[in-house]
Amino acid sequence: MEGDCLSCIKYLMFIFNFLIFLGGSFLLGVGVWVLVDPMGFREMVAANPLLFTGVYIILAMGAMLFLLGFLGCCGAIRENKSLLLFFFMLILVIFLAELAAAILAFVFREHLTREKFTRDLKRHYQGHNNTDVFTSTWNALMTTFDCCGVNSPDDFEESLFRLLSPDKMVPGVCCQGNGHPGDAVDDLSRDECQRGSMELRYNKGCYSAVVDYFETYIYMAGALAIVVLTIELFAMVFAMCLFRGIDQ
């Protein structure tokens, strides 16, 4: 009876670790996908150190889960006590690190508010200065999502951009069609747009545009995090049960 129970635990642990292996593969894929710069995402996160660091955290966690899933599968099938203990300790460290990361994300959530992004835009955005990382990042963001400012084009009032370009209400990337190959606005339309023509510019703020775009993925990421934590808990329980059951 004990042998059947031990065998059941062994195969359950193998299944859970295989799921961890798949989860690690998924996180690695997401991290690499962002770093290879689809749709200018690398420039978008570069302006915020928390977001930029988060990409590398995802890569590191994905690599560790990938490795641990592989080790857990090997330890379960071979019934190796040393490998099982090593696996348990590492996955415990990862589990605690994930909880700490979730707590830090909650604590520093105020750094991702509309108000902070608006203040930064007003203070640092320069217009067409491609040598400035902050400016080029925002240009890539507004071009990608067809948006203007954080909340609306009004965000550029009393800003550094207006101080540098007092004759322009909005930067050129806020003009419809600008930045899209084969659909660039002509100089006259761009001039009218930058002087305040609401019909020729994008009037939606980038904060809403980005949130709307990523809303589905945010819920998916949250659900995946809960699933991964649950799987890790079960994997640790099965690892200890198998460790204690071997040679008994």
Rank of each mutant, 00 (worst) to 15 (best):
L71N: 01
I218C: 05
M39A: 08
I15A: 15
G23M: 11
G177P: 11
F18N: 01
Y207P: 04
V34S: 05
P38C: 08
L160T: 09
L35S: 05
L27I: 05
E232I: 07
F18V: 05
L160F: 04
M13R: 08
L163E: 10
E115K: 14
Y217R: 03
R244D: 05
F106Y: 13
L6N: 07
L83M: 14
L99C: 04
D183S: 13
M44P: 04
L51P: 01
Y213I: 01
R119T: 13
I91R: 07
M64G: 00
A63H: 01
V55L: 09
F117A: 14
S7W: 02
D4E: 14
T144A: 09
D146R: 15
T53Y: 14
F70C: 03
L51A: 14
L22M: 12
A140T: 13
P166W: 06
N130G: 03
M142Q: 15
V45Y: 11
Y213H: 13
I91V: 12
S7T: 12
A100P: 07
L121R: 11
F117Q: 12
T53I: 05
H111C: 04
A184Q: 15
F161I: 09
I58P: 03
T113E: 12
M240F: 10
D183C: 06
L92V: 06
K116F: 09
S189F: 12
E158P: 00
H128T: 14
F108C: 02
V150Q: 11
G75I: 02
R195T: 15
G24H: 00
V228M: 09
F238I: 04
H124S: 05
G75C: 09
G179Y: 04
V185Y: 07
L35I: 02
E2Y: 12
C5V: 15
F156A: 02
F134P: 05
G72S: 07
A60P: 08
M198K: 15
G62Y: 04
W138S: 07
A46Y: 12
F87D: 01
A235P: 00
M1R: 13
I103W: 02
F161N: 07
N203V: 09
D155L: 07
C241P: 00
F117M: 15
F134L: 04
L121G: 06
A184I: 08
L141R: 11
G196P: 00
A76H: 11
R123L: 08
P171H: 10
P181M: 08
L65R: 05
S208A: 15
L50G: 05
S208P: 00
R201V: 11
R78W: 12
W138C: 12
M89C: 10
A47I: 13
E43P: 00
L67G: 03
P153R: 10
F243Y: 14
F95A: 01
D155G: 08
F87R: 01
T144N: 03
S189D: 15
F108V: 06
L84I: 10
V150Y: 13
V30S: 04
K122G: 10
I15P: 03
N17M: 04
F243D: 05
P153K: 10
E79L: 07
A63W: 02
Q126A: 09
C175D: 03
S136P: 00
M220T: 10
S165T: 12
I94V: 10
T135W: 09
F21A: 01
A221S: 13
E43K: 08
